[in-house]
Amino acid sequence: MTPPLLEAREIGKTFGSVIALRGVSMLVRAGEVTCVLGDNGAGKSTLIKILSGVHAQDSGEYLLDGTPVRLGGPREALDRGIATVYQDLAMIPLMSVWRNFFLGSEPVAGPLRRFDVALAKRVAREELRAMGIDIRDVDQPVGTLSGGERQSVAIARAVYFGARVLILDEPTSALGVKQAGVVLRYIARARDRGLGVVFITHNPHHAFPVGDRFLLLNRGTSLGQFDKDAITREELTSLMAGGAELDDLAHELDRHGVAGPAPAEGSAAEKEPVNGDEPPGQGAGGEPALGRRPVED
């Protein structure tokens, strides 16, 4: 079997006396989606920054195509085909879609090295269409696009500029339910085009439908990397929310002693289509139920 596109082995990182990441391993294969899940402060951003070349790891190995590397910076990562789409996006709201699409890598033509506008517009339109992104007009300012459309344009841009590994930093967290579904569809589309995708999120309901592999982080350490057939959505949600911790919380908050998350959804959840229609946080895990129950009862 060909080596994975990207692999991290026992990666660790400390900032002064703070251990941000310890012994985390993960792998990304072409045409697969690896989801990185974790609560705030779990070490997700540190891991992305190491993968995208912003930081270098202090311990462990970082392998690309099976060869250990040490990235000198984000530019080197990009040159090796690792593109990162950050949550706050490198997009200029007042500029048109096609100008944004080629920003920093404008195609030039002619003796005056003019910006080949016709080519830029055509390619932007074609690439967006190839990703199934239905933009009304590439001349419209990016600021008039919805959050999901902007994420999608950023993904299409990374794909066009030769990304082999696409790292998406919480692309769905600021979005409404429908928009999140749209972005999940483009993640699947990028995967189908043979890219290895790293999808960072804290929402297991967004991760489960598209993920092939799930890395769970908690307080800087790995809770394990699971293949899709080795874990159910409920287990994922429960692990994500801190499993035992949540059970304890349930006990603490509920004097009548109804233990643990409500198992109401059962197996139905697994058959749900990839549409992201489910409101985040409303599924398994029992957080809403806890929230609604008055403590003074």
């Binding site: 200029i92 100008r99 080629f102 920003l103 404008e106």
Partner: peptide, 12 residues
């Protein structure tokens, strides 16, 4: 502004 790379950079 409209037809050169530098123009794109100025807007950006």
């Amino acid at each position: 502004l409209m037809r050169s790379r530098a123009g794109n950079w100025i807007f950006a």
